[in-house]
């Protein structure tokens, strides 16, 4: 090894270009990791497809969906649950990001990120954006397969108008995952996230059945579904497919995303010390 004279430190402060490079680097690394874990991509795709091809086909004759916004005619059950399955991909992707953050913390990679001189809020927001970009790739892959199953929005523009809804839902669920990652002590505890977060969020929502049907069976469950931010993510996506905006869903998803992200940033703030036990090795 040959020591040599190094250049002096660069000028102080960071410019916009440096912020952009940092952001790009974090997104690039997440994309590379996703590329290296192709099984993750396949399983992310298979899960909703099983629901679409088997569950929805089986329940088609049992669960009819009457006319309700944004639909202006009767729709097949497969059509109804597609936005819910899209949101499910986003939900699992957000939780997968949470899992990878816990893994990174245990393997030490998280330290490399957190000792970057950029502000921690910026690093975490970039990581969140990177996770959202990965979830978008999964969603569009699913939509391509669904297209060949003859499930598509009323016009091709629906694929474009759903994009902002997907980004917002991805940010909200990714921020929730990030917050959870700060609370999970060990990788083994992640099973709890499945049982206490993913399943209740998914099933107590409008992803699989319209809320008016839930209300018929159990008014209190319908109330819980209405409180569930995932319901609003599903509805935001459903309306966006039909080139419409559900303003209540938009407000809830946006507000919840901001709250989850602020809580995650606070949880990772060094002065609050919530990570002490998590990061402390020796």
């Amino acid at each position: 090894m040959r020591p040599a004279v190094l250049a002096p430190p660069r000028s102080e402060g960071f410019g916009l270009a440096q912020y952009a490079r940092c952001f790009n680097g974090i997104v690039w690394r997440e994309a590379l990791r996703f590329w290296h874990q192709r099984e993750r991509f396949v399983s992310a795709l298979v899960r909703p497809l099983v629901w679409l091809f088997i569950f929805a086909a089986g329940f088609r004759s049992v669960l009819g969906v009457s006319i309700m916004p944004p639909y202006d005619t009767y729709v097949l059950y497969e059509v109804y649950i597609t936005p819910g399955l899209v949101a499910m991909i986003t939900l699992f992707s957000g939780m997968q990001s949470s899992l990878s953050m816990v893994y990174d913390r245990e393997m030490g990679n998280m330290r490399s990120l957190l000792v970057s001189p950029f502000p921690r809020w910026f690093l975490l927001t970039s990581k969140l954006a990177a996770g959202t970009a990965v979830s978008l790739a999964q969603v569009y892959a699913f939509l391509i397969v669904a297209f060949f199953w003859e499930i598509e929005p009323p016009s091709p523009w629906g694929y474009l108008t759903v994009l902002p809804a997907l980004i917002l839902a991805g940010l909200m669920l990714g921020a929730l995952g990030m917050l959870l990652s700060s609370l999970i002590k060990q990788l083994e505890n992640f099973a709890g996230v499945m049982n206490f977060v993913i399943f209740p969020m998914f099933f107590a929502s409008s992803a699989l059945y319209p809320l008016w049907r839930v209300k018929e069976g159990s008014p209190w469950l319908a109330f819980v579904c209405e409180l569930n931010p995932f319901t609003h993510a599903v509805e935001l996506i459903r309306f966006a497919f039909y080139e419409q905006i559900n303003f209540l869903a938009l407000a809830v998803v946006l507000g919840t995303a901001v709250v989850f992200l602020a809580a995650a940033i606070a949880a990772y703030d060094p002065s609050r010390g919530m990570l002490i036990r998590r990061l402390h090795v020796h």
Binding site: C22, G25, I26, W28, S112, S116
Partner: peptide, 14 residues
């Protein structure tokens, strides 16, 4: 090299 590039990005290097 990818590990180094990631670190460089975290320091805003071109």
């Amino acid at each position: 090299l990818q590990n180094l590039s990631y670190h460089a990005a975290l320091h805003g290097m071109s």
